[in-house]
């Protein structure tokens, strides 16, 4: 068990998300940076989909009620275990009673905002409709279907002794950088209504920066930049949408659907951020700029393959390393 001693807004239990509920109106939820979550679980030799705590606001403080192995992936939050420094993206041992503190992320060699506290054998909340992710809109899943509060006691899985402390992973944000004109970027496939926008709107989409406004959260990122205008007003019938879809409401300022987005909508879609780049957006700070890079289907497949390769390679090297250390 771990006890939350101090938590800011909107820390939630997340795994890689809930599938199969879209026809009931149930969105996917899941980690905003699924790569950091999967990597943390690989470090601890958990299943990649094991539930962890997503921390978007700091400081954050938690006490380990029994000894375990943990890793903090995502943003580097200058972690401390009692007084000792905690390396990011690193498997650490914690003894019963020790307190982990995370402070506001330092923007150093990789700019990130969300941390993931991964624990050997995971946060053991009940799976609801096939996932442990918190469904905030439906108030189910995760821990009581809500963000964490001070004093919450989260059950953790019984450690099977596979996790080995004392090594780490290099964050994939360093190995797989993506920028346009020095601005962090994500790749986008044009969507159904792309051709319904003016040429200058299409140009603006690809060639200008988009600021992530303060009205951005797990539901969606509201962007500000040049106004995007359709050739004529569009009213669409409601249809299924997915995280990554860039909708343009009548105001002309785009909204990117994120992990808690509703699974359907009707605003015109100018493009969709490819699934393989959503983790980059999940770590983009409010107030920062993002660029969109137009990509082809084959390039999008290549990006997915890059992610799969990084995860497989990490898993292989971690198992090799832990095998040498006498782990099972």
């Amino acid at each position: 068990m771990i006890k939350i001693l101090s938590v800011g807004a909107l820390a939630t239990v997340q795994d890689l998300g809930r599938t199969g509920g879209l026809s009931l109106g149930v969105g996917t939820s899941g980690a905003m940076d699924p790569l950091a979550l999967a990597a943390g679980n690989i470090l601890l030799r958990n299943q990649e989909n094991t539930a962890a705590v997503e921390v978007p606001v700091f400081p954050f403080k938690v006490r380990f009620e029994r000894s375990t192995v943990f890793a903090v992936t995502g943003a580097d939050c200058a972690g401390r275990l009692d007084e000792a420094p905690v390396l990011p993206w690193w498997a650490h041992r914690a003894e019963a009673g020790q307190v982990l503190s995370l402070s506001h992320p330092k923007q150093t060699t990789w700019r990130a905002t969300r941390a993931y506290l991964c624990i050997a054998d995971g946060v053991d909340v009940p799976a609801v409709l096939g996932s442990r992710s918190t469904q905030l809109r439906g108030s189910f899943g995760g821990y009581e279907g809500r963000p964490l509060r001070d004093g919450d006691e989260l059950p953790t899985g019984r450690s099977n002794g596979r996790a080995v402390p004392g090594f780490g992973l290099v964050p994939p944000g360093l190995a797989l950088p993506l920028e346009a004109d020095g601005v962090p970027a994500v790749r986008v496939l044009p969507a159904a209504e792309y051709d319904c926008f003016t040429n200058s709107s299409q140009d603006a989409l690809w060639s200008t920066g988009w600021k992530i406004t303060a009205q951005s959260d797990r539901y969606g990122y509201r962007l500000s930049g040049r106004e995007l205008n359709p050739l004529r007003p569009l009213e669409l019938r409601s249809h299924g949408i997915v995280p990554g879809v860039i909708q343009v409401p009548h105001g002309g300022q785009p909204i990117i659907q994120m992990r808690d987005a509703q699974p359907s909508g009707g605003y015109p879609k100018i493009g969709t951020v490819i699934e393989a780049d959503l983790w980059r957006l999940g770590q983009a700070p409010i107030g920062s700029n993002v660029r969109f890079i137009r990509c082809s289907w084959d390039e999008a497949l290549g990006a997915s393959a890059d992610i799969r390769r990084w995860l497989a390679n990490s898993r292989r090297l971690v198992e090799l390393h832990c095998g040498e250390r006498g782990g099972r």
């Binding site: 993206w89 690193w90 004392g166 090594f167 190995a175 990490s314 090297l317 390393h321």
Partner: peptide, 14 residues
């Protein structure tokens, strides 16, 4: 305490 690190692909050793 780690004095430095050794990187092997994505793996990082102290």
């Amino acid at each position: 305490d780690p004095l430095g690190f050794l990187q092997i692909g994505p793996l990082l050793l102290a």
